[in-house]
């Protein structure tokens, strides 16, 4: 009955301020959803770094008219260089096969590209990825069978700074939303406490502790936070099913973008739920302490 009592207080409170409760739940859900998205992007970035960064830092593209002699000279130089941690050779055929796979979603593009259009190359992993210039200097463009040396790291840096920007923007909006949610929670709790000040003062007269009278309000906020978190998690699941798995299916299969797997969502869900419940509960507690005399 004691637990029942508190719970029925919570239910009454949430129903009494239904519109405020809905607003509270929605802002919390949006904020937590964005936070989850930010976390997923962050996870994706580190997955992508693993896919790209560790493998290729510099590509040495060979000219169309490269001779066998030139090719083996380049290979020898790479093999002997202390700057090079490893390299792989990619022939025209291999390059084309990889291209076909990457752009399998755009068959016209594949059809319109002749099989020998893509250059053969050495994909080089450096001991120190920052030392791109040394390799570039060793293989001047357009000489000795080398067409071009490209710093893939540079391209990746730009790609990742874009992704990092997206992540930061998402998290920034999430924080602003969280602030709005917290203010709304604080407001709702003040209103609820005001609405029930008679009941509360009666309970206090009978000897109920401060905790006992405050608990329903805190649980109320925490419950709203939990519902918001569940909505946010639902939103992430829907986003994965409808956007990531459908629209981004091609690049994911080609290995350009890592997939968002269920494990990642399962991993961040408890974080989101805890953030929702914790922040709402703490906001309510602080509000009651600072603004409400119960």
């Amino acid at each position: 009955m004691r637990v029942n009592f508190v719970l029925s207080e919570v239910a009454t409170g949430l129903r009494r301020n239904l519109t405020m409760t809905v607003a509270m739940v929605l802002t919390t859900a949006i904020s937590l959803g964005l936070m989850g998205t930010g976390l997923l992007i962050a996870g994706m970035i580190s997955d992508m770094k693993e896919i790209y960064y560790d493998k290729v830092q510099v590509s040495v593209f060979l000219a169309d008219d490269v001779t066998d002699q030139q090719r083996s000279a380049i290979e020898q130089e790479l093999a002997g260089s202390p700057e090079v941690a490893g390299y792989i050779y990619e022939s025209k055929d291999e390059a084309y096969a990889r291209f076909q796979q990457q752009f399998s979603q755009q068959p016209e593009l594949v059809q319109n590209t002749p099989a020998d259009a893509l250059p053969e190359s050495f994909r080089v992993e450096l001991v120190n990825p920052e030392r791109y210039e040394v390799i570039a200097a060793a293989f001047p463009n357009g000489q000795d069978g080398v067409d071009q040396v490209r710093d893939e790291g540079d391209f990746l840096d730009r790609l990742f700074s874009l992704l990092n920007g997206a992540r930061n923007a998402t998290i920034a909006v999430a924080v602003v939303q969280a602030l709005a949610a917290l203010l709304l929670i604080s407001n709702t709790i003040q209103l609820a406490a005001f609405n029930r000040r008679n009941e509360t003062s009666i309970m206090r007269l009978v000897g109920a502790s401060r905790w006992y009278t405050q608990l329903p309000f805190i649980l109320e906020a925490a419950l709203a936070g939990l519902i918001g978190a569940l909505l946010a998690i639902g939103g992430l699941v829907v986003t994965k099913l409808l956007f990531v798995d459908k629209t981004l299916a091609g690049p994911i299969r080609a290995g350009i973008i890592p997939p968002v797997d269920w494990g990642a969502i399962a991993f961040i869900s408890p974080v989101i739920a805890a953030a929702g419940v914790g922040l709402a509960g703490i906001a309510a507690y602080v509000t009651l302490r600072l603004y409400v005399r119960l």
Binding site: M1, M203, V206, A208, Y212
Partner: peptide, 30 residues
């Protein structure tokens, strides 16, 4: 302290949304 003091007022001060029995039980629950 208040648990050792009973109090009664002109305006009764009962919890409106609780039954009579629940109102009385409340003093024991706390």
């Amino acid at each position: 302290l208040r648990r050792t003091i009973g109090c009664v007022f002109q305006d009764f001060r009962l919890l409106r949304n609780r039954t009579v029995a629940q109102n009385v039980a409340f003093a024991l629950e706390v």
